[in-house]
């Protein structure tokens, strides 16, 4: 019976529910939501790919292929923290549900080669890159935009 006061109080006061889809709540600024990429700023330093705890970012500086497994991202925000040029920005909007497995792929300007890799590595890389590009062309349905949300 000790709960009685609480439930009568609840009954007489307004409900505590946030009517979510009808009333959108603005999340705090610090909230780690979906990313925004300004891919033109990317210098292909591979910092984000190295520091990512999920290892969901793949970068190939030679072809300019920038790929992220959206499905595996844990939204820890490390990539945004370590990006030296600020091309990865975290917004405070959470990512909406999706109905198809997706992958995020960008093409950016390849970095000029500094060192010449060995013969073997070069052929290996070429093969990988070719398959990656083929896959990517098959998967892509829309051209990538310079500024885009994941």
């Amino acid at each position: 019976m000790l709960m009685g006061r609480t439930i009568i109080k609840n009954l007489l006061h307004k409900y505590a529910t946030r009517l979510h889809p009808y009333e959108q709540r603005i999340l705090p600024d610090k909230f780690r939501g979906r990313f925004r990429f300004i891919i033109d700023k990317c210098i292909m330093c591979r910092n984000c790919a190295v520091k990512c705890p999920t290892k969901c970012i793949t970068i190939d500086p030679e072809t300019g292929l920038w790929e992220r497994e959206v499905m595996a991202c844990v939204y820890c925000g490390v990539c945004a923290d370590v990006c030296p040029t600020g091309c990865i920005i975290m917004t405070n909007v959470y990512r909406p549900p999706i109905t198809e497995p997706t992958k995020l792929t960008f093409m950016c300007t390849p970095r000029p080669k500094k060192k010449k890799p060995t013969e073997e590595a070069q052929t290996m890389n070429k093969k990988d890159v070719e398959t990656a590009i083929k896959q990517q062309q098959a998967e892509r349905t829309a051209p990538s935009l310079p500024v885009s949300e994941e």
Partner: peptide, 23 residues
């Protein structure tokens, strides 16, 4: 109803977490 009441209080702590730490 006790479950609901306690989780309602808990949401306040979650709001603090969200605003201070980001998740």
């Amino acid at each position: 109803s006790l479950f609901m009441a306690l989780w309602r209080v808990r949401e306040r702590i979650m709001d603090i977490n969200e605003a201070t730490a980001g998740n």
